[in-house]
Each structure stands twice: as C-alpha cells, then as structure tokens.
Nucleic acid binder design. Structure first.
Lengths: 129, 129
DNA sequence: GGAAGTACGCACAAATTTGTTAGTATACCG
DNA sequence: CGGTATACTAACAAATTTGTGCGTACTTCC
C-alpha cells in the first residue's frame, strides 16, 4: 500500500471517491468495468495488436474491445499506434502511467486468483449454514 | 506486488482470469462493479450499519447497497451481524479475507486519486491534438 | 479465384444493471 | 398522535451495457 492509499485510510481526502461527483469515479469505472480490467492485465506483457488482444481476452466482442481501448486511451493509460498500411496494423501498449495503474490491477487480480481456493471454500461453508 | 501477482506477470496460471469461464471473473466483478469497490473502501474504516453505509457511499440506492452487500457476503468478504431487535439493527464489517481484498482495492483507488492531476493533465493534452 | 484476415464504425436487438415506489413492525421524539 | 428512523424486499420502469451482424479496402494464402 502506498502513501496515498494510507492517506485514504487515515481519512485524508476520504470524501473523494465516495462522493458521487468526484472525477475519480469515471477513471475507476474504466479500470474496473467488465473488460477494462482484463485488457490492462493482458497488456502488462507488452504491446498487442487488436485481434491478438481479442483472442487473449476470452469473451470480448470487437465492439467492446474497441470501446474499452478508446476509454483507456483517453485516460492516458494506453498508447495506440496506427501504422498507415493496408490491411490495417495497429499496436496497443501501456503508457508509463498505464503501467502504474496496471500494477495495482494486476495485484488485485493476482490476489483473487491466489485466494480463490480459500474463497470457494468459504462459499460452501456459507451454503451449508 | 505480491508473489501471486508476480507469478501472473510471469505467465504462471495466466490463462486464468483471461479465460471466459474462470470463476475469478465472478469474484472480480463483485469487487469491481459500480458499488462493490466503493463499499469495500467505505468498510475499511470499521463496521458500519446499513443506513450509515448508504449515506457514506454517495449515490447508492438501498436496493443496490443491499444487493452489493449480499454479493460481498457470499464471497466471504463481508460479515453481516443482525441483532434481533426491532427496529432492526444490522452491522456490516470486513472479514479477514475481506480486509486483504480491500487493501488491494484501496491501493488502486488511492493511486487513482493521487494520479488524478496527472491523468487530467494528460486528457487536455489528448484533446488538444 | 475464393476464403480469410485486418481494425474497426454503424445500426439494431437483447441482456443486464440500476432506479423508484411502496410496504413491513416497532420505537423514539416532540 | 404524527413524523422519522431502521433494514430491508418485491414489483415494475428506465437506463446502460453488451452483443450481432454487416460493410470496408486491400493482401496473403490455398
């Protein structure tokens, strides 16, 4: 946990995200909506082309992928490079800012995967009650 | 970043979340949907009652809050304690597992708030192009 | 020569999420 | 005695997200 996160816990600027009209809400939603998170994770391993990303992230439609990438690009997390050739060739990669964001996202996702056995075990407990 | 997250980056179990049918997807969505994230953040400061939580998390409706809490409870992140009195009195708090999850969520949210100036600055850059 | 691949945008439909309203039993406050 | 608060749920409506073709302008592979 970094200084800012600690500050959050201490109450510093706490009202921020919890306030309905804070701009963080928008950024947060791009990073945490159905595909944003997965795309960030996928991009941590380096630049990817559109179709490559689509294959890697199981279940995204082309439409959702392009929309997600557009949002992440607008937030400055993803850099889009279009080589002017035909057929089209476009590369997507994380910006330095994007790599910072991705680190946190990956940490969360990684923790979930690691804790999955424990979480699932807890679920059967709850169900048995 | 913990060992599991690093393993993720190294490709260990990488197909997991990116696979459409991985159970992590469900857990992830509870932690990263519109209200789940905010509720986790709000609960890091200790136990809260329903109405208290509703006031703290700007914009949640009662329906969404109770649904969100139910999901988080089912995942084993939140403990619900109902005191059998009337009028009702119910307390919600993070479980140990929930505190681990919340730490990652808070780290992400905290980073966003801290990086907000930089993110917004980047946006005007992009818009000017 | 036909099929498939590329990186999307558009229009429309379906699915999912979210909000709104009303209702519960009772206690406390003025 | 009337209003407010508590912690919800069910029913229904609205909004938002997501998916599904279809088209593009060309190239490479078979």
């Amino acid at each position: 946990m970094d200084r800012v996160a600690q500050g959050l816990l201490d109450g510093w600027q706490l009202g921020n995200v919890l306030a309905a009209d804070c701009p963080s809400r928008g950024i947060l939603s791009h990073l945490t909506n159905r595909w944003g998170t997965l795309v960030m994770v996928a991009l941590t391993t380096g630049p990817h082309r559109f179709a490559e990303l689509r294959r890697k992230v199981g279940g995204v439609s082309e439409r959702m992928l392009s929309q997600t990438l557009k949002d992440l690009e607008a937030d400055g997390f993803v850099l889009r490079t279009a080589h002017q050739v035909v057929p089209p060739h476009v590369d997507y990669e994380l910006t330095p800012l994007g790599r910072e964001a991705a680190a946190h996202v990956v940490a969360l996702v990684g923790w979930i995967e690691g804790a999955l056995p424990e979480i699932m075990a807890g679920k059967v407990q709850l169900a048995a009650e």
